[in-house]
Design a protein around this nucleic acid. Structure first.
Lengths: 227, 227
DNA sequence: CATCGTATGGTACATTGTACTAGTCAAGCG
DNA sequence: CGCTTGACTAGTACAATGTACCATACGATG
């Protein structure tokens, strides 16, 4: 029997699989990768609540409990799905870029775009730990800022500021995306005397989210740029 | 019977209650307010998953289904609990402040503090609409920035930037708060060659969250300040 | 051949939100 | 006074869900 409740890793094999003669046709064997990929498909199609272990198993053509060999629990699936969606391939040109600001903007815009492509990921992020793809992005951010001349004492603050901004913007955008009726309800609350300013500025109706993200990011980078 | 599935409001009475002779002792009657207050207590004590309709009813000394007279569903409870926690009493001094920056910092720090006092609120925010307390804060922010001289064309971007920053910071902080083991796991992933920079800067171990929040906010305000 | 690790999956259970339904009580009206 | 109505409370029941427990199969190794 598999080791119950091991400490850190899951219970599945750590050695490489011994090639089970590769099945001729039919369903390929279960694997972490296949589970995660299918979970992402399901999440994209049905949203956060749409993902159930039963549904996942059905889509994989397997029994429900078989999943638990490869995965600790549903939370684990969420963790893996989230990180799998956040890979980053780097800025367009291969050579070292001269423009650190452009590099950062590119990476952060890609980050946001990746999450918005899978809107469930935004609701997931706040409560999970950092997967390797996220860490890679942070590492890149850190390197770039450091090379750009940001003082070491300001570095962590700068990184977290950018992180905060991107996360806040993405989460907000994703949640407003889902509920047009909530927007309408909120907008209706505005009419009256209490919220004149935001009503006049049409804060909630301005839907140039991409432009606003970019402009706000520029403001933030203005503040962060080494003087 | 009460009108099933009304459009906008819930099914509970909209007129004032006709004073049921006020019960001498025992449990006070159910009310939206009592339900929300108790829900907040439970959320504080047990976290997001700890709130169940059954638990809530038990704590209120009522039947489970009685709750549904005052509340549409569990989501509704979450909405109400969230907004109830975000009231803002304004900056310390009563007279008009000269220092718009201090006013904004005060409000935003209070916002963050309010949410961190109820850590479940951070996970709730991204996916819900804007309650009246949130709108009031946005209105205040808008007025202050406008009075400070931020151009109308930049106003919405400025507001959203600050919102994004605060939300990102708070959500991040709250989620890291919950899981020390996740932190440790992430930190362990760092050792190696891939993440040298963030390992060296001790990004994940720096726990002066309050200071970092304040400093990053200053950077952002530097960028936003009218030139 | 026996044993063991890898892997699959059926059954069963506790827990959840909430639909349905029946009830209580007070106010208003004939 | 009896009857109706509407505000409110609550028990029962159900469907959906995550997953513990158990039985099983199969290839490799002794």
């Amino acid at each position: 029997m598999a080791a119950k409740r091991s400490g850190a890793p899951s219970k599945r094999s750590l050695r490489t699989r011994p090639q089970p003669v590769l099945e001729p046709t039919g369903e390929p064997p279960l694997s972490r990768e296949r589970i995660v990929a299918t979970a992402v498909e399901l999440l994209d199609a049905q949203g956060l609540d749409g993902l159930t272990m039963r549904g996942l198993a059905e889509r994989l053509g397997s029994g429900v409990m078989s999943l638990y060999w490869h995965v600790d629990n549903k939370e684990d699936v969420f963790d893996l799905a989230l990180d799998s969606v956040l890979e980053y391939r780097g800025p367009p040109q291969m050579a070292e870029s001269q423009d650190w600001r452009a590099d950062i903007v590119h990476m952060l815009e890609d980050w946001r775009a990746s999450m918005l492509r899978h809107s469930w990921s935004a609701s997931l992020l706040p409560r999970r730990a950092l997967g390797s793809n996220i860490l890679s992005r942070l590492e890149l951010l850190s390197k770039t800022l450091s090379k750009a001349g940001v003082a070491d004492t300001d570095l962590n603050v700068a990184i977290w500021s950018l992180w905060n901004y991107v996360m806040g913007a993405t989460i907000t955008r994703a949640s407003f995306d889902l509920s047009d009726d909530d927007m309408a309800a909120a907008q209706q609350r505005l009419t009256g005397e209490r919220y004149t300013t935001i009503e006049r500025s049409r804060l909630l109706l301005d839907n140039d989210w991409d432009g606003a993200f970019r402009k706000g990011l520029d403001f933030l980078l203005d503040g962060l740029a080494p003087r």
